[in-house]
Design a protein around this nucleic acid. Structure first.
Lengths: 368, 368
DNA sequence: CCTCTCGACTAATACGCATTAGCTGACGGG
DNA sequence: CCCGTCAGCTAATGCGTATTAGTCGAGAGG
C-alpha cells in the first residue's frame, strides 16, 4: 500500500551530493567548501568557485538535522515557552521579548525555531519529551514563569546550552537574563516614601514565581531603606485579587492610614486590575487621596487609563541580552552566566504626596 | 593528537543501542517499541515491557535531529517575512497571524522556523539567497505585502511548498490564504447604501498591493449592487494622505453631497488617520453629519477613539488556514490551492443615516 | 518428511552532512 | 632515478533513528 514514488517526489531540496555532481567534484569537497573547512584543507580557487556556483544554481541549503547529527552547528536558536508563545490575549508580554530576540539573533546570523509543543493546540508543555525537542537547535531560550524542573534539569546536566528569560536559580548552573525587579521595586517604594507616604501596601498574586519574590524583596528593601516599618499585613498575597481586593477592603486599609498601594505585574494583570477597580469603587481619587504604583507595565486593555507610576520592564533588551548570552555560550562554551537588566522608572501620574489632613477620609455616599 | 575519549565523555544521553543492550534485544526492536511502529510489526508483550523498562531506567530520550534525519522531513514550517517578523511598532498585524499560525502548527505537530534574515539586524530580505534559506524547512509561509517575485518564482518552480498569507496571483501556482476583502468591502458599502447614503468615497493609499485592489473592487461592486453610480473621483488614491486629505478637502467633498467616506486599512493606517483628522478638522460630527467606515481594523494607537464601522480581518484564522494549506500540501503533495477567509462585519459607531436636510446633491451628469 | 506460512525478531541500510583517512600526480632534493 | 613532500582531492565512516529486507524456529498442510 505504500506508494514507492521512485525519485519523483524527491523534494526539491538538493543535497550536497547533487551539488557535487553538478560541480564535478566529490561530496566531501562540497562539504569542505560550503562548511567551515576548519581542517584547513586546501582547495583550489577554481574548484571552490565551481562548487559555490553549483550550490547557488541549485539553491542548496544544508539540512539542519543532518548538520546537527554530524555533531556540527545549525545556526538555529530555539525558543521554548511554557504557554503559547503567541497567546490569544492581545499584546502579551512575550511579544516584546521576541522583538529583542529576533533582532539580536538576526544580527548574529541565527535563525529562530519556535517550539510549539506547549501551545494550546499541541500536546502541551507537560507532554513527555516536549522540552527535548529543543535539542534540534544549537541552544535554546526559555520563556515563561512556570517551567517544569525535571526535564530542564536533565537538559542542563547534559550540557545543552540554555538561557532562561527571567531570573531563575532552580536548576543549578542554568544561565539567565533577568530584569532587576528588586532594585526597580525598591526605587518605586523609595519614591513613594520621598513623597511622604508612611504606610504602603504591596498586593501580589498567589504565585511562586521568582519575579514575584524579587519584587516583594525589593519592596521590603525599599521600605527598610526609607526607614519605614513593615508590619504584618504589609504584603497582601491573594489567589483571587478580584474577589478579595474590593472597595470595602480598600476603604478599610485607607482608614487605617495606608496612603499608597503597590501592585505587581503578572501575566494577567489581575492584581492591578483589582486594585484600580477597588479604588474607584471606594470613590477615592487618584492620586489626590490615594497613590497607586505598579511594579511593571499595565495590561494593554487599560491603555486608556492614566499611566501608572512604576517601572517598565525592558523586555526587548532582555531578549537581546539572552540571545547574547546564549551565543556566547555556543561560541566559547563558557560556563553559564547570568545578566540583570535594569528597569526604567516610569513617573506616571498615579502617585502624589499623601493627603495633608491625617484624619480618616470623609464618608462618601455609595456610588450609583 | 586526536582526543579519542573512548566511552568516558559519552554523552550522558543513552541511545537506542544502549537500551537495546540492556533489554537484550536489537536496536531495531527498541525503535519499534519506542517509535510509532507504523509498519504493524508484532512484538511480544514481554519484550515490549523489557524495552520500556530499560528505556525508563536509562532515561532514554530520542534525539530529535536523528529522528528527523531518518524521517526525511524535519517537521519544521518556515515563516518568512519581508520586514522584521516582530516589528518594533506595537501591535503589528503580523502578531495576529502568528497567533493562528502557532496554534495550528502545534496542533499538527510542526515547529516553526523564523527566518530572521529580513530583520533590521540581518542582511535584509533583499540579500541574495535570503529567500533560499527557507528550503531548510519542509515548507514555508510567506508574510508581507511586498514580496520580491524573482526568487519566489524559482522556489515555486522547484515545487517547494509555499503558502502566501494574503491573496497573491503573481507566480502562477502559488498557494495562498487570503481574506475576502472584496466581499467584506462590498458589504460595508451596501450597509451604507442601505442607510440612505448616495455618494460614498473610498480613500486609498498609493499602493499596488493585491489587498488594496481587492478592497477597491469590492467597494465598486458594492456601489453597483446598491445601484449607485461611481463617477470620476469616487476612488481617491493618494501617496500622502496626511497632506492631501485635509479639512478643506473634506469640507469640499461634503459640500458636493458626499455623506460617507471609506478608508482602507494599511500597515500604517495613514488613510484612516488622515480621514478622521480631516473630519474633526472640518468640525463635522460623526456619525450625525458624516459617516466613516474603515475597511479593516484601526491602528492600535486609535484604540481609544469610537469603534469604526467596517470589518475585522480574521488574521488568526488566516494564519491557521495557511498552515492547514501548507501541511496538506506536505501530506499529499496536492497541487497548490487557495483559500478565502471571510471577514466579520463590525457594526461600530461611525455610520448613521445621512443628515435629513436634503440639500440636493448637485445633479451631475453621470459619465457614461 | 518436506515445503509453507507465520510470528517475532534482527541485520543491513538509508538519511545528509562532517570528518578522517587515504590516494594521486607533480615537484624537489639527494 | 628514487623517495619524500605536498597540494588537492576523494573514499569511507560515523552520528542516532526509521525502515526494509531478511532470518529462524514452530506449527500447518500435503
Amino acid at each position: 500500500m505504500t506508494e514507492r514514488e521512485p525519485r519523483t517526489v524527491r523534494r526539491g531540496r538538493p543535497r550536497q551530493a547533487e551539488v557535487a555532481r553538478l560541480a564535478g567534484v566529490s561530496q566531501t569537497t562540497v562539504s569542505l567548501v560550503l562548511g567551515g573547512n576548519k581542517q584547513g584543507i586546501v582547495i583550489q580557487e577554481a574548484t571552490r568557485d565551481r562548487v559555490l556556483e553549483a550550490a547557488r544554481t541549485l539553491g542548496y541549503v544544508p539540512d539542519p538535522a543532518a548538520r546537527r547529527l554530524a555533531a556540527a552547528r545549525n545556526n538555529l536558536l530555539g525558543v521554548f515557552s511554557f504557554t503559547a508563545t503567541f497567546p490569544t490575549e492581545v499584546e502579551h508580554s512575550y511579544y516584546r521579548f521576541l522583538v529583542g530576540i529576533e533582532q539580536e539573533a538576526a544580527a548574529r546570523g541565527y535563525d529562530l525555531v519556535l517550539f510549539t509543543g506547549s501551545s494550546s493546540g499541541g500536546a502541551g508543555a507537560g507532554a513527555p519529551g516536549a522540552l527535548d525537542r529543543v535539542r534540534l537547535a544549537d541552544g535554546c531560550l526559555l520563556l515563561g514563569r512556570h517551567v517544569p524542573s525535571e526535564p530542564l534539569r536533565r537538559l542542563v546536566a547534559d550540557g545543552f546550552p540554555l538561557v532562561h528569560l527571567g531570573r531563575r536559580d532552580e536548576p543549578e548552573g542554568l544561565a539567565w537574563a533577568g530584569a532587576d525587579y528588586a532594585a526597580a521595586s525598591a526605587e518605586v517604594v523609595e519614591h513613594l516614601a520621598g513623597l511622604g507616604h508612611r504606610r504602603v501596601l504591596l498586593v501580589r498574586e498567589d504565585d511562586d514565581a521568582q519575579a514575584s519574590a524579587d519584587r516583594q524583596r525589593g519592596f521590603l528593601d525599599g521600605l527598610a531603606a526609607a526607614g519605614l516599618p513593615a508590619p504584618e499585613g504589609t504584603v497582601v498575597r491573594t489567589a483571587r485579587p478580584a474577589a478579595e481586593i474590593d472597595a470595602a477592603w480598600l476603604r478599610a486599609r485607607h482608614a487605617e492610614g495606608v496612603t499608597a498601594f503597590v501592585a505587581e505585574e503578572t501575566d494577567t494583570g489581575d492584581a492591578w486590575r483589582a486594585l484600580t477597580a477597588a479604588v474607584s469603587g471606594a470613590g477615592l481619587r487618584v492620586p489626590e487621596e490615594v497613590s497607586l504604583a505598579l511594579l511593571g507595565s499595565p495590561p494593554a486593555d487599560l491603555a486608556g487609563a492614566p499611566e501608572p507610576t512604576g517601572f517598565d520592564i525592558p523586555r526587548a533588551e532582555m531578549g537581546a541580552t539572552a540571545v547574547r548570552l546564549l551565543t556566547d555560550l555556543l561560541a566559547d562554551g563558557h560556563r553559564p552566566s547570568q545578566a540583570l537588566v535594569t528597569c526604567a522608572f516610569r513617573p506616571g501620574s498615579t502617585v502624589a504626596p499623601p493627603p495633608r489632613r491625617a484624619s480618616p477620609p470623609p464618608p462618601r455616599p455609595p456610588s450609583p
